[in-house]
Every structure is written in structure tokens, then in C-alpha cells.
Amino acid sequence: MNNSLALATSGLCFSYGKSATIQDISVELQTGRFYGIIGPNGCGKTTFLDLLTGNKKPSSGTIDLFKAPLASYNKRDLAQHLALVPQEYDTGFGFSVEEVVLMGRHPYIPRFSSPSPNDWQRVNEAMRAIGISGMRDRYTSTLSGGQKQRTVVARALAQDTPLLLFDEATSSLDIKYTLQIFNLVKDLVKNQQRTVIAVMHNLNLAAAYCDEILIMDKGKIVSSGATAQTLTTEIIADVFGVESTIVWDSYNQAQQICFRYRQTEK
């Protein structure tokens, strides 16, 4: 079916000070797939995303985005291909929800121009999809953590890019909104051939939504492939140092990981 490359890295390395935080990552990610990156805290997941967005420059190795070198994109071009929902964000000096979502259209609006009707349509669609149309005039400084996060997701949707990066995008959302956002993203992947790379901490969510999983540990990708084959009790014990057992959840038609709350020797 589709086998066009969305993103490929080869021998990607990055070091911060003396210690290497990303070591020799080579991956090929196809369009129209939902990729999950999992791994323990501090294993370099956010740094990996920083390299993909051009926020940090690799010390060696190459990144190709839609078959062109990342460096060949200027910032605006890049922002039309790749959107990021960061883990930490400011909401600025009290902009309204609508204004923040409209900032997602920045790469499309020429300097000194006003947003076009198409820009407004994208903004309205994104807000409706996330269900925040009702609070479009609220100031972001008055929002709860979850509301802010949904605003940022809506902004990334308004950016209308073929590749979407999520860095722990649902960490402050309750279960309803978490599922809402993942369902929405899954739809974009399925119906619009978009590509999603999501850093996730909740392994069961990863198991339920991701087509493929990349497991990171100490700056390397230690295992990757189709979710069912990659998420195993062995690798979970190896990487996270916790015991678990994996069962088939027929309700969700997905793997379900049950953890045992006892530290294993590592």
C-alpha cells in the first residue's frame, strides 16, 4: 500500500557537554503510521524530538524529512511540514485561546498580512475537533492545565502538517480528553495519511493506539517494530526495570500490560 518515507535518520548522534544523549539512531518512518516512542525518564526522548524539529543540531548523522535533508528546509517550510505539541510551554502574556490556535497558522500568513478565510476555517475546525470552541475568548492564563494542553493540541492541528510530533501531549488530561485526542489523532493517521510520532509514558495507551513502537534507553533505540511484537515483558523489565505480564484485552482489541508493584533486580 503506502511505503513513502516520512522521516529517516541515519547514524544520528547528539552530545550535551561531555555525555552523549543520543547515540547512533537510525530509523525509517513511513507516512500514514502512528509511531510511539517509549522509554524511561531521561533516556533522550525529548532531545530526539528536538533534533527532528531542528531545535537542536545533531553532532553527527543525517535527518531526512519527506526525502529531503532537514537542513534544506527553512523555518517556515519546516513549520508547514511538521508540528510539535511540546511537553512544556508558556502561554504568553495572556493571549486568548483563539489567538493561540491562530498562531498555528503563522507559517502560512505572510508578514503584515491578515489571516485569510481559509486560515480562520482551519482554526475553527481545529477548535471544534478538540471541543474548545466554547472557550475561544478565554485568556489562556485563566485556563487549567488540561485546557491549556488542549489549546496547544488545537494549535498543532491548525498548523495542518503531514507530520505531527507529540511530546507527552496528554500528561495533564483526564482519561476522557486523553482518549478524545488519541482517537482524533488516530483518525488523522488513518483517513488523511498523516504521520504521528508521540512520546508516551502510558504503555497501555501506546499499546492501544500505536502501529509501531520505538523503545529508547540511554540515548539509543533498543527495539522497534510492530507494537504487539515489540512490547514484551522482557524488554519492559530490561528498560524500565519493572515486572509485568501482558494479556489480550478483547474489549479494546489490544495488548494490556499489567504491572507488578515490586521492583525487579536490574
Binding site: 524539529t53 523555518k75 513549520a79 511538521l82 510551554y89 508558556d90 507559517p107 498548523q159
Partner: peptide
């Protein structure tokens, strides 16, 4: 909105 966000926009 902060570094990461503005860069990605």
C-alpha cells in the same frame, strides 16, 4: 509561547 513552540511554528 516559549522556544520550542515558536521554533516549531
Amino acid at each position: 509561547l516559549g522556544n520550542r513552540s515558536s521554533d516549531s511554528l
